[in-house]
Design a protein around this nucleic acid. Structure first.
Lengths: 198, 198, 198, 198
DNA sequence: CATGAATGAGAGTTCATTCAT
DNA sequence: GATGAATGAACTCTCATTCAT
């Protein structure tokens, strides 16, 4: 596959991404993508053979894009609490982002494709976040910012909580304030005094 | 609609429930249900006009069934912690139940139907659970079983956590042990001493 | 068939008539009629076996109703021109009647059922009108009201003209004024001086 | 849409035309047309989305075909009466044409689609004919061939008469002779002496 | 590589008609 | 007589997928 082909594939993936954001996963047909890309029906099949494959590649691209390695963007003098708060704010932003949200499509995809752990991007992303948080809590506990006896469980707890709010936002609704309160509650549980927040 | 019709409708809803459990929501066609019920194509339309309607009624029936009013089944001398644990165990059982699980179908349904709060069974169920937990935490705090400064937030926290584990079970996987550890963590956060559990 | 049955049949025909007026002939289903009558599906089949049969009987009933023998309602001292004008006004009223118009249904019915002349109510009605007009023109010509060399052709001419306006009203549109002018033109052709009209 | 597509569309319209002639408008299904064209079910939808659209295009094509501009085919030395007679003969031919008659389908179509005047081909055709006849009668009156005080009304009269005979041919029946007599009557009314005809 | 016409399977839906009660 | 549940044929419409150009 030449350079041109690679460009074309990228182009299709970008357009397809928009479609998945708009319609979720199951509602998307090859026709939808063909139309979004303004290419021929047969043309699409030269690059992809199903919406499943396209979606998976969209997800991979997303992954690559997203890994601007969170850890690297932290200020030198940031405390563990600062970083954790930053992480939570970022998650919140993602949850409330309207026009750039693959959440529904992703869930729909994994509802019918529960691949082995290795291929499961969702799981990889989840686990990676858990590790980051765990590390943060450990560090924070060591230097007295937090109080936590089990950083591993705390990290998982935070991630499941975030997952819960993410899915709630898509089904039963979630307000900005409700999420803020949960973030506050969570930090309080870690022993962060209110005077230390703002 | 006579008594017989009502029976038939119930029968269809039961069969349809099985189909939704097996295939989720979006994958189910009127034909699937017709075949599961072993009735004629036109026959189904005498009772329901779409899979959406059928699913909603399945959900309502589920609701009615489920409301064996949890509160009533509590032992006289049960402590708040006992009851909370009971509730969490029940949620765990539901999450790990293989052959009786409408979770995926329900999420799929609400992904494309985000009705007003009134119609949203998912939200009703969620809110009702929040209220129960909140009450438990309040009582437990009053009599010294728990330590909690904000029962309302704690209740929401528990419910979002459960939601997070529920969706995780369907996407990235969730082990029995992982859930147990989260339950333990949660109780610990409420200040329940380990000696008091087992 | 007992008295009660006859009443029921009449009832059905009345309701069915409304349906045909509203929807034409081809668009009407047995279901429509069943619903309009608020009887059971099977019940309708006890009396009629198809919409075609029902429509035909509606048409027969119409015929019976309509034959209040036009000729009898004429004033003693009415001139031929008076009577002809009366007839034309009546035809006009029928054409412009909105809520009581079986025209479309009737045409639709005869488009797919071109029965022998004997059964053709439309033809019977047409021929009967032709005879009446012919007689009128003859009488009018004899007593000098009209000038007409061929009353038979004139009568047919008038009837075809009316048919043309009737169908036009249902397809390309026909205004009240346009019809008035045609009536005027027609009388003029019969040599009725304008001073004699108003 | 390429040249080939245009050809295919034309082909479908031709076949569909035959179907409409044979079965009228309301009785025709997409399946009928698919079978007449010997194409696939889905194939037809590439070109048309409903029988209504197909019929309308058939009618438009008919219109285009029919506009061999009647006016142009008139002999140099033809009198107004000659031309009018020619027109009437042509109408008669159309009415009695068995195997090439869209009359019924057209009426059925306009029974359920009464679009604005602009889209109403039937009305356009009617009005255009009225104008032609009016002109003819005017000219004929000027040069003494006809006697007519109101060419506009006379033209309308002729057209409504033709409409009446057209619909009668499809419902109550119309003989060749009956139509001939009406044509004769009509010319007589315009003051054309019998010696001047045939 | 790329096109887009063509196919045919299959989902949704409606109705005339029957038949056990 | 009367009911209305049940059937199955028929129709509309959409898509994934192929293939000649």
């Amino acid at each position: 596959m030449g350079e041109k082909s690679i460009q074309k594939k990228k182009f299709i993936l970008e357009k397809a991404r928009d479609v998945f954001i708009e319609k979720g996963y199951k509602n998307v047909t090859m026709k939808d993508i063909v139309e979004a890309c303004d290419i021929s029906r047969g043309g699409l099949y030269l690059y992809f053979e199903s919406t499943a494959q396209i979606f998976l590649e969209v997800l991979h691209a997303e992954e690559a894009k997203g890994s601007d390695d969170f850890m690297d963007h932290i200020a030198e003098d940031a405390t563990a609490a600062d970083i954790l708060l930053l992480f939570l704010q970022e998650q919140k932003a993602e949850i409330f982002r309207k026009k750039d949200n693959l959440t529904v499509a992703t869930y729909e995809y994994y509802f019918e494709n529960k691949p082995t752990k290795k291929d499961n991007i969702l799981k990889k992303r989840f686990d990676s976040s858990v590790r980051i948080i765990e590390k943060l809590v450990e560090i924070g506990t060591e230097n007295g910012e937090f109080y936590c006896e089990s950083p591993a469980e705390a990290a998982l707890n935070i991630m499941y909580l975030l997952e819960g709010m993410k899915i709630s936002a898509q089904t039963i609704g979630l307000t900005n304030e409700a999420m803020d309160r949960q973030i506050l509650y969570l930090l309080t549980m870690l022993g962060v005094g209110e005077e230390e927040m703002e």
